[in-house]
Amino acid sequence: MTKLSVNINKIATLRNSRGGDVPNVVQVAKDVQRYGGQGITVHPRPDERHIRYKDVLDLRPVVTTEFNIEGNPVQKFIDLVLKVKPEQVTLVPDAEDAITSNAGWNTIKHRDYLREIISEFQDKGIRTSIFVDPDLEMVKGAANTGTDRIELYTEEYARQYAKGNKEGIKPYRSCAEAANDLGLGINAGHDLSLSNIEYFNKNIPGLLEVSIGHALIAESLYQGLEYVINQYLSLLRD
């Protein structure tokens, strides 16, 4: 089945809004795994407005599934990843003031830059993934960076699906087919939810992993974290 990695950034956002340590991100990570989540994703940003760098260090000993650290590979981020040695690092070209991720890499323009960073992580045994738009040229460019996987940026799919336009899946399917041919693993994330994940999963050949945070945490406010995680796992089974 496609693996579910739960992004816990929003838990840290809630904690930071009040100060103190409630909710506790380490405990939530433990609970996510206990409820069946197959990975924990965090995306520390330079201003630490949600996940803090210390959180990443605190989480490393308790993540027993797969630890995925996302972020823009500025030097501070690179140093953190090399220290923590997660199972996977996902490179995202965030601007420092971005509210959330809003674009994939230009894998052609930044090929040499990405190749150097990816090589550094792979030398330490860390699987690499790079965030890309559903653009065939960017997927082909990704293969030239040496990355292990790509993460398809799914905001546009989610927007089109919400409008009832299932044709919005087509560029994602084409990119997935190209990635399979190029030997790239496929992850996906951004605005995936209980309402749109099943259709996406069934129509993307070779989908290995989805990273879901905002929607999953919001859905859990109404239905409970354990129930929601198990709903996702059910929808992600082949």
Score class of each variant (00 low, 15 high):
201 N>D: 03
156 E>I: 12
99 I>E: 15
29 A>H: 11
69 I>P: 07
211 S>I: 02
88 Q>D: 06
161 Y>F: 15
85 K>W: 08
88 Q>P: 05
50 H>D: 04
59 L>W: 02
157 Y>A: 02
219 E>H: 10
113 Y>T: 14
80 L>I: 08
8 I>S: 00
93 P>L: 09
8 I>G: 00
177 E>Y: 07
153 Y>D: 06
225 L>S: 04
197 I>L: 08
91 L>S: 06
116 E>P: 10
43 H>D: 00
109 K>W: 09
175 C>P: 09
105 W>K: 10
14 L>G: 01
10 K>D: 09
151 E>S: 12
82 L>V: 05
166 K>C: 10
144 N>H: 14
156 E>N: 13
137 E>L: 14
39 G>H: 10
215 A>T: 10
82 L>A: 03
212 I>C: 07
79 D>H: 13
125 G>V: 10
236 L>V: 06
54 K>C: 04
235 L>G: 02
201 N>K: 13
212 I>N: 00
48 E>M: 12
212 I>L: 03
120 E>I: 15
46 P>K: 12
55 D>E: 04
127 R>Y: 11
122 Q>K: 15
183 G>K: 04
5 S>I: 07
13 T>C: 11
6 V>C: 02
13 T>A: 14
178 A>Q: 13
6 V>Q: 00
82 L>P: 07
136 L>T: 08
150 I>A: 06
10 K>G: 03
27 Q>T: 13
82 L>F: 06
62 V>Q: 06
42 V>K: 05
152 L>Q: 06
143 A>D: 03
59 L>K: 02
170 K>N: 11
32 V>M: 10
166 K>T: 15
154 T>W: 01
100 T>F: 12
234 S>N: 13
210 V>K: 03
130 I>D: 00
133 D>N: 14
212 I>D: 00
233 L>E: 05
78 I>M: 13
69 I>Y: 08
14 L>Q: 06
186 I>K: 01
224 G>E: 09
124 K>C: 12
46 P>V: 13
106 N>D: 15
161 Y>W: 13
94 D>I: 00
107 T>W: 09
209 E>C: 11
34 R>P: 03
200 F>G: 05
163 K>A: 13
144 N>A: 11
133 D>F: 05
77 F>Q: 07
89 V>W: 03
205 P>I: 07
9 N>P: 08
28 V>S: 02
